[in-house]
Design a protein around this nucleic acid. Structure first.
Lengths: 295, 295
DNA sequence: CGAATAGTGTCTTTTAGACACTATAAG
DNA sequence: CTTATAGTGTCTAAAAGACACTATTCG
């Protein structure tokens, strides 16, 4: 390693007084000495989402130390030199929630100079979709240091009672106003298990902003990607109703049954992405056809 | 440096068999000592796109040193401790191309451990859209160390001759096959000013992959965002035909005139995003209505 | 039977695509 | 007139949305 550094430094000295393009190459090389410059810390932040009781929830941890002591934050951790950001994210999810092999996708990288008051931190945020049944985060023993919060945007409801239906009013379908181009003006709404609403100001760092970014991303992609499948308890056996509940939880409103089936069958079943397996046994009501994700 | 690593390894050995949540907080704090860990280098990569002669082009620089000496690469630079990634990207664009205030958006962060053979580098890639007329990159003096390459995907054309129409065949409209969900199978096609085709293997590092990601992102977003406006020579005075040329260059195929006008007027003019100004003077043909971007 | 859930059919509105046509300029 | 570019109108097909209806289970 040492001789490589020497070689790079020699290169840097030799090629001066050039046009801007060459100067760029020169600086590039000089900077490549890993000890020559102070480098920022790099972390991964985990937006771990799940759908529990037909509601979209996110995992937050309570900070035990300043800054933002006592506030809730997105779990994260430092990137190690021998792992990629994806690997670090997967590792943190394993450590934090005891889950392996979940769907993981990069969200955004946050790099504002002052986002952490202590030192310069670059955070690469990842979005993870996890079936609620697989989550294991030190449940009863400690006073809740980690917890799931229901996530929504602004006005779309006040009813935080768990075990309830998705939405009080608006039973009639998907007739939600479609604002401009990238719409959805409201603000982030986090509801604890006991119904308490956590105002965005109570979130540590810039994590409220990150959560909002993640939610908007999911809402934008759920219709034409495989995102929803990551929430299914068993991707090898689910009903279209269960899949619809996932979509509804993410979008924050009910979907029309017939229209949902039509588009799913057209866009996914016809494309061979999901397939029927057999008719399940119902507990109440008519038994539903079971589907499985293919590939 | 060596004793720090030893200390860390000792820590690593000591901190086993804990409750997962508390261990995370503890580790978080320990890692916050900025000198305690070896940190990766962080760079920004600039995907500088422009539309010149109705063709989509990207700025690449030729590497003067190993690794990948002589190969073409995406321009980039190191992130400084006192600037955000966005600021670093804007600075590099100013240095490299002499442009200020261009549209800039984050693309993706690349973090594979071995992506640079010298040291650990995290690259935050930014996509910039620049009017061709504003580009100033050390033009005639040196043998081209930086150059614009026409960008396309796979099969969609062979005609690299500049100053030509966008596409040889396929004059009939937008009837391009719509594969599955995230389609567009082909591979990256880079064409130099002299018509030479640069195979993806000739691109340094993982930069061919990054370019492909960028192109796909642009194609996906051009229809419902303000992306195209960033390429207009004068956003305060342009014609719908000029705007269409930008869309065609990015998509890689011609668009139907009537349908294009219809959707632009519905989605942008009706929403107050663009507005008519006055009828321009034509050089040939009927003079066109001029539009301007609002806000 | 009623309650509960699964699933179908169909009408209307909106959007996308294809394509022929008219309009206004220069020479 | 021809050419070149700008702009309109319209027919059709596909997709989205609303909503009423039928089907199958349990008790």
């Amino acid at each position: 390693m040492a001789e490589i550094k020497d070689a790079l430094n020699r290169y840097a000295g030799a090629e001066n007084a050039e046009g801007s393009v060459l100067r760029e190459e020169e600086q590039f090389l000089r900077d490549y000495d890993p000890s020559a410059f102070e480098h920022p810390s790099v972390t991964v932040d985990i937006l771990l989402f799940t759908v529990e009781e037909r509601q979209l929830k996110v995992l937050l941890v309570r900070r035990a130390t300043p800054p933002f002591k006592g506030r809730w934050a997105i779990p994260g951790g430092f990137l190690r030199m021998e792992e990629s950001a994806e690997e670090a994210a997967a590792r943190r999810i394993r450590e934090e929630a005891g889950v392996e092999g979940v769907h993981l996708e990069q969200l955004y990288t946050f790099s504002a100079v002052d986002r952490d008051p202590r030192t310069r931190v670059i955070s690469i945020a990842y979005l993870a979709t996890v079936p609620a049944g697989q989550l294991r985060f030190g449940a009863g023993e400690e006073t809740a240091e980690a917890a799931l919060f229901r996530v929504g945007i602004g006005e779309d409801s006040g009813e935080g009672a768990p075990g309830e239906e998705v939405s009080g009013g608006d039973v009639s379908g998907e007739n939600v106003s479609r604002e401009g181009v990238s719409g959805e003006a409201g603000r982030l709404l986090l509801t604890a298990a006991d119904g308490t609403v956590l105002p965005p100001e109570e979130i540590a760092f810039d994590h409220a902003e990150i959560l909002l970014t993640a939610l908007q991303r999911m809402r934008g992609k759920i219709g034409y990607t495989d995102l929803a499948f990551g929430f299914l308890e068993d991707p090898q056996s689910f009903t279209l109703a269960e899949l619809r509940y996932v979509h509804e939880a993410i979008l924050g409103h009910k979907l029309d049954v017939g229209n949902f089936r039509r588009t799913i069958k057209r866009d996914y079943e016809a494309a061979g992405r999901i397939g029927e397996t057999e008719i399940g046994r119902g507990e109440v009501g008519r038994p539903a056809m079971q589907y499985r994700v293919i590939h």
